[in-house]
Design a protein around this nucleic acid. Structure first.
Lengths: 115, 115
DNA sequence: GACATATTTAATACATTTGTTAAATATCCT
DNA sequence: AGGATATTTAACAAATGTATTAAATATGTC
């Protein structure tokens, strides 16, 4: 579970960068993947990608398994799910608030059309 | 709908800051709210909050309506929903991938226990 | 008009992020 | 051992983000 504000901040900052989002996208298409393979389509140095991966890893959006000299990167969907839930709490709350508002407006309209 | 990568980046950066998340939380409890009222519990100058609000506004997580000298701030749940959907696409994809993996592992285990 | 209130903008300082290149580390291969 | 491959760490520059205080702007009230 995503608990702390700190972790939530890490997750959202990680997702805020388009390169990191593309890495996640790529990871979802390719599945477990080596660093170099992940980095391939980016017009950016390997150290830059390495750093992005560290950010994703610190946010626990990604998990690293060392196998010899290769580092195999895997997505960690549970974390993304945590962020999703954080957001969902507000969306559902606001939706219900707006639905309630709609209801009130409808009733007022009915009353209005009666008189 | 949340379309561009740019907007997605804005939304996630906006959500990455704990103060801004608290502002949204407060906004969801209080509903439409004046800037000063929103800023009340924060140990931070008003200009700082003003900036945070601008960030939220640029991300379209929040909407501003000027009424005389007061600015009334409202949450914009549609945008949050957009972010939610972006995340959902990966979560569901990964879940199905993992489910498929589980299925394969189960079958292999059955085969293994037979031989 | 003069003063109070609500909010933003400007100027500035400091911290963090993001990219680059060069060097270091770890592992594999012959 | 020596060389090739995979990846990270270091040093640094440029851009961005966040907070502060002081001043500006817009509106309301007597």
């Amino acid at each position: 579970m995503v608990n702390s504000q700190r972790q939530l901040s890490n997750i959202f900052s990680a997702l805020a960068d388009p390169t990191r989002r593309r890495i996640l996208e790529r990871l979802s298409r390719l599945g477990q993947c080596r660093v170099t393979a992940l980095a391939k389509p980016f017009r950016m140095s390997l150290p830059a990608i390495s750093r992005h991966l560290r950010v994703l890893e610190e946010a626990k959006l990604v998990h690293r398994q060392k196998k010899g000299r290769e580092h195999l990167i895997t997505a960690e969907p549970e974390t993304l799910k945590g962020a999703q839930q954080w957001i969902a709490q507000y969306v559902t709350y606001w939706e219900s608030r707006f639905d309630a508002m709609d209801e009130i407006l409808k009733r007022q309209t009915r009353k209005g059309s009666k008189s």
